[in-house]
């Protein structure tokens, strides 16, 4: 038996919108820790890891670990029927091939339930070691989204370079080149507008912009994004989900042969 009640149902709606462009079908894993997911995109270049901790739910009952295979597009279709202020409850029974989403309006005058068919998904779970990153950049998520969008109109790849000066995003294409440098500005009044750069070693890595743009679908989840980089390792682009957990995107770099 599984029953997860999320008062801020809009968070689940935003999570789905954040990941469904990258991944079509995925297993949602439910345990005492929380509601989680790990899935790769179809070309195995990017990976998404989601965690919504059990403490973040108003009510969290998960009698034993279960894994529910869902089409994210179908799940998004159902969650789009929930109002932004609705409370969302996810219900499942052991051995059942369906999951139920219940939506309650804040005034309790409208209660809907949507039952969705589950699917069998063979998924490969990857072990991601804890790593010390050479550089960690924190910046406003909207700024990062803007940069990825702007650069993708000029080139297909972005070079992210971190130096003591700040973080530089560069691209080149048929029409020319572009460089955007963001400097630290941690003295700004509003913490959500700050850009901070922690650097142990200079880093320069090349990534496909198509994936970066896909990650920025998570922008509504968090005012800030954290970009963790190490030379010749996948980048981690993390959006924290207020007091509940995170969506992390891992993207393999393009490496000189």
């Amino acid at each position: 038996m599984l029953e997860l009640r999320l008062v801020q149902g809009s968070l689940l709606k935003k999570v789905l919108e954040a990941i469904r462009e990258l991944v079509n079908d995925a297993n949602f894993d439910c345990s005492a820790t929380g509601f989680s997911l790990q899935a790769m995109d179809s070309s195995h270049v990017a990976l998404v890891a989601l965690l919504l901790r059990s403490e973040g739910f108003e009510h969290y009952r998960c009698d034993r670990n279960i894994s529910m295979g869902m089409s994210l597009n179908n799940m998004a279709k159902m969650l789009r029927c929930a109002g932004n202020d609705d409370i969302i409850t996810v219900k499942g029974d052991d051995g059942s091939d369906t999951v139920t989403f219940m939506f309650e309006s804040p005034t309790q005058d409208k209660i809907s339930d949507f039952e969705m068919k589950l699917m069998d998904i063979d998924s490969e779970h990857l072990g991601i070691p804890e790593a010390e990153y050479h550089a960690i950049v924190r910046m406003p998520s909207a700024e990062f989204a803007r940069i990825c969008k702007d650069l993708s109109s000029i080139g297909d790849t972005v070079v992210i370079s971190v130096t003591k000066e700040g973080v530089k995003f560069s691209t080149k294409g048929d029409i020319g080149t572009a460089n955007i440098v963001c400097r630290q500005n941690s003295s700004v009044d509003k913490p959500e507008e700050a850009t901070t750069v922690e650097m142990n070693e200079p880093v320069s890595l090349t990534f496909a912009l198509r994936y970066m743009n896909s990650f920025t679908k998570a922008t509504p989840l968090s005012n800030q994004v954290t970009i963790s980089l190490s030379n010749e390792l996948p980048v981690v682009v993390e959006y924290k989900i207020a007091e509940m957990g995170y969506v992390r995107f891992y993207l393999a770099p393009k490496i000189e042969e």
């Binding site: 195995h44 990857l126 090349t206 496909a208 996948p234 891992y250 042969e257």
Partner: peptide, 14 residues
């Protein structure tokens, strides 16, 4: 020329 690596090159399956 840079080659797009797969995420599978970096992380082991569990």
């Amino acid at each position: 020329n840079r080659r797009q690596f797969s995420i599978l090159v970096f992380y082991a399956m569990t």
